[in-house]
């Protein structure tokens, strides 16, 4: 645990008042808390995780857990130890989920033929090979949820159960993969002209 950082008491007081306001349903206070603490929480996870996507997911998961468990914060105790206690809890759950994750869902064989629909009339043609290449360029953590949802048609809830992550994380990863694919495929099409 990182523990309370050596910042001024004024900063800690500000966090306490933000946390109290957040417990009273102040959305702005949550935004400010996120802005103040997201970097510290991210730094905490970089000590155990290497993958940037996983770190990002863990940070989001931590703030979701902060939201769910906001009643367990007892004002006027310091906010940081509470936040990092939750981060440690999320990290432990993530490790457990990774350990329990079934092996068969760990990786997809991208060498196999992927079902690619023919382009609709008037749309730019994208080669199946381009998609293959763009997909191969994605990190496995985002590729899997995208494939499971957009190609195999699984719901985010079942993807979450399959990969041992939350539905929100699955959705985030899939949307990140879509964005990356859009960028990658646009580049490919432009380079052909």
């Amino acid at each position: 645990m990182s523990g309370p950082s050596p910042r001024e008491p004024a900063e800690e007081r500000r966090l306490i008042s933000l946390m109290t306001a957040y417990q009273n349903a102040d959305l702005k206070a949550f935004e400010e808390l996120y802005a103040s603490l997201a970097d510290d929480v991210r730094r905490y996870f970089t000590r155990t995780e290497r993958d940037r996507v996983s770190i990002h997911d863990l940070v989001q998961e931590t703030f979701l857990e902060i939201h769910r468990s906001r009643r367990t914060y007892l004002p006027p105790l310091p906010v940081r130890p509470w936040i990092f206690g939750i981060a440690r809890n999320v990290a432990a759950r993530s490790r457990r989920a990774a350990y329990l994750r079934p092996r068969e869902s760990a990786a997809f064989d991208l060498d196999g033929d992927l079902p690619v629909a023919p382009p609709a009339s008037g749309m730019q043609s994208v080669d199946a090979l381009d998609i293959d290449k763009a997909l191969a360029g994605l990190p496995a953590a985002t590729r899997e949820p995208w494939l499971l949802h957009h190609v195999f048609g699984f719901s985010f809830e079942s993807i979450a159960a399959r990969l041992g992550i939350t539905a929100m994380a699955a959705k985030l990863r899939s949307s990140r993969a879509t964005k990356a694919l859009r960028v990658a495929l646009r580049v490919t099409v432009r380079s052909e002209r």
């Binding site: 009273n24 959305l27 802005a35 970097d39 991210r42 939201h67 009643r71």
Partner: peptide, 26 residues
Amino acid sequence: MSDTRMPDALFDAVKHDLRPVRPLAS
């Protein structure tokens, strides 16, 4: 590395569920 912008999905999730809560007793 610094990215303090909250993702939309997280913001929406918190916004939809936000209501006052009473802290746990000691």
